[in-house]
Design a protein around this nucleic acid. Structure first.
Length: 280
DNA sequence: CGGCAAACCTGCGAGC
DNA sequence: TGCTCGCAGGTTTGCC
């Protein structure tokens, strides 16, 4: 499910229930997600206060008052919901409950179990194996056309693959890469190294714009994504190309018979959607 | 280092 | 109705 906008939606939804709350119980009902859960997770968190909830790329970081940091990744199908009181009986994919002193239950659900919940410490978090190699967050000041161009320079791989690589820019996934390439009129097959100058500027602006629009829409709800209060995102209604193969390109005025409409191809094992006429 | 397929899981829709 | 197949928002790992 979750790319940057969905994770940011989750962060914003969880913050009111978690920030400044003390955890009174942590119920872990599964031994492992993507990796084994820290055996001392509950022990380390109970009685501890949540100071801040932040996001790094697609990772949620829960900063505790004693310096410990909970790293949460939602994988493909993870979501988190807040129950202010009386949470329902956990279902088979409801793996972890965090209970606050206000009586709220913050529940981690993940059918495919590609997600992760790990522990680290504020002093070492930047060096954590999963975080240390991440590229700039596309909404931060570290991300701009010059920086993106520099990171793409000399690369022969297709731009689609480079944007999916979290070391180049961190937070995009399949949907937002497709949509950003469409907005900047760049072919997903274009060699990364040729995205310089004006193209890098257009791509940077497109990525920022797509992400901002998606966050404003509460993310994309195709199957699993719901915000912590249970509401659905609606950015899927604004897709230009994702999942729209065979449909008319929203940017082309000419006959769909001539253009073939939106195409689908597979790159590095993932579906790419694009308009071959508009995107070069 | 680059690039790709496989692996980790469950669920859903399409087609037979 | 029920089976099989392909596909799904991610990321790591291992192989060439």
């Amino acid at each position: 499910m979750p790319e940057l906008p969905e994770v940011e939606t989750v962060r914003r939804g969880l913050a009111p229930a978690l920030e400044n709350a003390t955890l009174t119980a942590v119920q872990v009902r599964i031994p492992k997600l993507r990796w084994p859960l820290p055996p001392d997770l509950a022990e380390r968190l109970i009685g501890n206060r949540v100071e801040r909830l932040t996001r790094r790329a697609k990772y949620l970081l829960v900063h505790m008052s004693d310096g410990c940091v909970v790293i949460i990744h939602l994988g493909m199908s993870g979501h988190m919901t807040v129950w202010p009181e009386d949470a329902p009986t956990p279902g088979r994919h409801d793996h972890i409950d965090f209970v606050t002193d206000a009586g709220a239950v913050i529940r981690f659900t993940d059918p495919r179990r590609f997600g992760a919940v790990l522990l680290d410490h504020a002093d070492t978090i930047d060096d954590h194996k999963l975080l240390s190699k991440l590229g700039p967050d596309p909404l931060s000041n570290q991300f701009n056309a010059e920086e993106l161009a520099r990171r793409l320079k000399g690369r022969s791989s297709p731009i689609k693959a480079a944007l999916m690589d979290q070391r180049i820019v961190a937070g995009l996934g399949n949907i937002y890469v497709c949509e950003s390439l469409f907005r900047s009129a760049i072919s997903p097959k274009r060699k990364s190294g040729t995205v310089q100058g004006k193209r890098a500027e257009a791509l940077t602006a497109a990525i920022r714009g797509v992400l901002a629009d998606a966050i404003a829409a509460g993310g994309t709800s195709l199957r699993d994504h719901v915000s912590p209060d249970g509401t659905l995102g609606y950015f899927q209604h604004q897709f230009s190309v994702y999942g729209r193969q065979g449909e008319a390109c929203p940017g082309c005025t000419c006959d769909i018979e001539k253009t073939g409409g939106i195409q689908r191809l597979v790159q590095a094992g993932r579906s790419t959607f694009y308009c071959s006429r508009r995107q070069r």
